[in-house]
């Protein structure tokens, strides 16, 4: 019987010294979906991915990729997966095309086919012009793309993307998202990690929020947001005399405590459901309370964590 899961893990543990970097992670990720790991720096995302990609041996628990054990059947697992790590794993001293030709040959292409394959990928990834430049001269976005292209020489059934857009400008980020969407349409399962709620929201069908090596919440982006709320509403009144009345109206419509900020006529509230906001603002207008400015901030990762764990995300320095 064929299994519907691309990844199944039970109680995965990895210990570094006395630190439990991954502390009992369970996963069941169906084939064909984009699954997002959302968590701050040091949460254990990379370590989990490295175990699943057969680069690290777990200290506890077990995991299967397409029914193959990641430890005892590592070779079989490697035939189905690709990894684009957090840090580019491309040889900077070589040119783009040289890098891809080498990897194509390692994938089993003949010398001639390898050249064609490398060319095809470079052009498709918008790197045709840069093919003959050394990778050290590439921009951050170009590096990311060639790194991902390198993972797709033979289309994998499962692709791991570790923070694929961290540090990229919005345009490059959109290009990476485009690549992921195209890949998934073609049937590849993607496990990606990110520190951005928006990215997980845009790309992932399901999200696991991970902190201190543990999954602290799991679900679709809608489910997670429902538990966190739609974000923070800020309203600036034209006239601070209306403040009290406005607070009462918002309080009633939004069903949530309204805070007034020290500068007069400035209100804010944590909103559970974005659709209530339009109605509440409409009511202010109906009551002749002019609003000079308003904004609905998306919930940040910090807010997600604050809600889920009651603790702030720690500011950790990136360690390599």
């Amino acid at each position: 019987m064929t299994n519907e899961y691309a990844i199944e893990a039970k109680g995965l543990v990895k210990v570094f010294g006395d630190q439990r970097a991954v502390d009992g992670v369970d996963l069941s990720i169906p084939k064909g979906m984009v699954y997002g790991f959302l968590g701050p720096n040091g949460a254990g995302k990379t370590t989990t991915i490295r175990m699943l990609a057969t680069l690290l041996q777990p200290d506890g628990g077990e995991a299967h990729i397409f029914d193959h054990d990641i430890v005892s059947e590592a070779g079989k697992v490697r035939e189905r997966i690709s990894l684009t790590g957090q840090y580019a794993s491309i040889d900077e001293d070589l040119t783009g095309v040289e890098n891809l030709v080498i990897l194509s040959k390692l994938a089993g292409y003949s010398r001639k086919e390898a050249k064609e394959r490398a060319k095809e990928l470079l052009v498709a990834f918008g790197l045709g012009e840069a093919a003959k430049k050394q990778v050290k001269n590439y921009s951050g976005g170009m590096r990311r793309r060639i790194d991902i292209a390198a993972s797709l020489i033979s289309t994998p059934d499962l692709l791991f993307l570790d923070e694929p857009t961290t540090g990229l400008d919005p345009r490059s980020r959109n290009q990476v998202w485009e690549i992921v969407r195209t890949l998934v349409k073609a049937g590849t399962t993607v496990l990606l990690t990110t520190q951005y709620l928006e990215e997980a929201d845009q790309l992932a069908d399901r999200i696991a929020v991970i902190n201190h090596g543990k999954i602290i919440a799991e679900g679709t982006s809608r489910e997670l947001k429902a538990s966190v709320g739609a974000g923070t509403l800020h309203v600036q009144l034209e006239n601070s005399d209306h403040q009290e009345k406005a607070m009462a109206i918002l309080q009633e419509k939004l069903q949530t405590p309204i805070h007034s900020l020290p500068e007069g006529g400035s209100l804010s509230a944590q909103v559970g459901n974005a659709s209530l906001v339009a109605k509440a603002l409409g009511d202010l207008t109906n009551e002749n309370i002019p609003v000079s400015d308003f904004s609905l901030g998306k919930p940040s990762l910090d807010e997600v964590f604050l809600t889920l764990t009651g603790e702030k995300t720690e500011e950790k320095e990136e360690k390599k």
Partner: peptide, 9 residues
């Protein structure tokens, strides 16, 4: 998009 789709699928 089309080129990309072809190349990676």
């Amino acid at each position: 998009e089309e080129q990309l789709r072809q190349a990676i699928t």
